[in-house]
Amino acid sequence: MSPLIPVETIVERAFDVIESVDSVENVVSDLRTLLGVDHVVYNCSGSGSDPTVRPYVKMTYPSDWIKRYVLMDYANVDPVLKRGFSSALAFDWSEIVVKSAQEQAMLRDAIGHGIGPHGLSIPVTSRLGHRGLFSVSHSGDVDVWRRYRADNIKGLVDIANRIHRRVLQQEFGETRAHLTVREVECLSWSAQGKEAADIAGILDISVHTVRDYLKSARFKLDCVNVAQAVSKAIAHGLISV
């Protein structure tokens, strides 16, 4: 939980990892180090909504916990998974309402294996409604954890959406969305060296809105930053300079 690197830098590095590292397995492993958390888990499934149907899971959990998880069929018990695939909003694991003795036993078992007790899960989706879940966990002091969560939630939401997008494109063949006229305009002005504030003046819209368009364009093009989005857009013939 290194406080030394600014959050923006971590997010940009994380995007780079998600974009360039060869396998999603290595992505989660690199993210764990980069984010300074105990564990990183990404869940998705072939069904698009039920995480237990043709599950796609990448995680940094120790192998003895993974074996135990499979052996005990915890995928059908895990309250984090259940809540994650029936939520739109992110949630802290402390918000989980334990509803059965089975769930209680599973959570106790998890803590016994060094998982949690603190965690944050971020549900993600796609234009086609294909759902996923990105979670990070931490075992330290609760105040440290709360601070970490508050400082990093925005970045983690972005990272969660990025990794989901990569998996959907790589494993499930989802394609990129098209750029709109406004997004292309904002990228074109960026290509000419204009900052968001300049573009806001030129297009007569707010700076916040310019950032939204650039962010959306970056997301659609899977780019780490605006500079990369500009060069990708040029390479694809989406903008000309």
Binding site: N161, A177, F219
Partner: peptide
């Protein structure tokens, strides 16, 4: 980032903003 009313029903009338897509 997911399906929205904006993208489905306002694509014609608000072509730019209706296609904004990001988890945040």
């Amino acid at each position: 980032s997911g399906p929205t009313l904006l993208a489905t029903c306002f694509a014609d009338t608000l072509p730019d903003a209706s296609q904004l897509s990001d988890g945040s």
